[in-house]
């Protein structure tokens, strides 16, 4: 997927929405290339298990590097329906293809359910430019 087609949180997650057959929305999320670069070498990833209820803006996983640990924040309120275990077991995937095979969670959400503030690509780029690297 091209990053220009995605939406972004201020906490460096990306998300894209698809409509499911039953009318609910499926949010697929991951972390951005900018965040991955800042985190340096990842060592461990913990993802909320399918079935977990997550809340917009609240943690839904953890990303560890050698000497840092960061929360992964859910962009939406909903239920985790799939976690990308392939990425968890092969962390290189995140760096290789952060917006594709490096996705992390699929969350089922409803129209009108809570979301955090989402930025388009240009706005996210501006935010990154302002942050010290």
């Amino acid at each position: 997927m091209r990053p220009e087609e995605l939406l972004f949180t201020r906490t460096h997650e990306w998300v894209c929405f698809e409509r499911a057959a039953d009318g609910s929305q499926i949010a697929t999320m991951g972390i951005t290339a900018f965040a991955l670069e800042a985190l340096t070498d990842l060592t461990y990833l913990e993802l909320a298990a399918p079935g977990t209820q997550v809340t917009a803006g609240q943690p839904c996983g953890e990303i560890e590097s050698v000497k840092a640990v960061s929360d992964l924040y859910s962009p939406v309120t909903g239920e985790v329906i799939e976690a990308n275990l392939a990425a968890r077991d092969k962390l290189e995937l995140l760096n290789q293809d952060p917006y594709g095979s490096g996705w992390l969670l699929k969350i089922r959400t409803q129209e009108g359910a809570a979301r955090v503030e989402l930025l388009d690509y240009a706005a996210y780029q501006r935010q990154c430019a302002e942050e010290p690297h």
Binding site: T43, Y44, E64, S65, V66, K67, A68, V69
Partner: peptide, 9 residues
């Protein structure tokens, strides 16, 4: 596995 420890977490 230092991310378990107090100086990081």
């Amino acid at each position: 596995l230092q991310t378990r420890e107090q100086h990081i977490r």
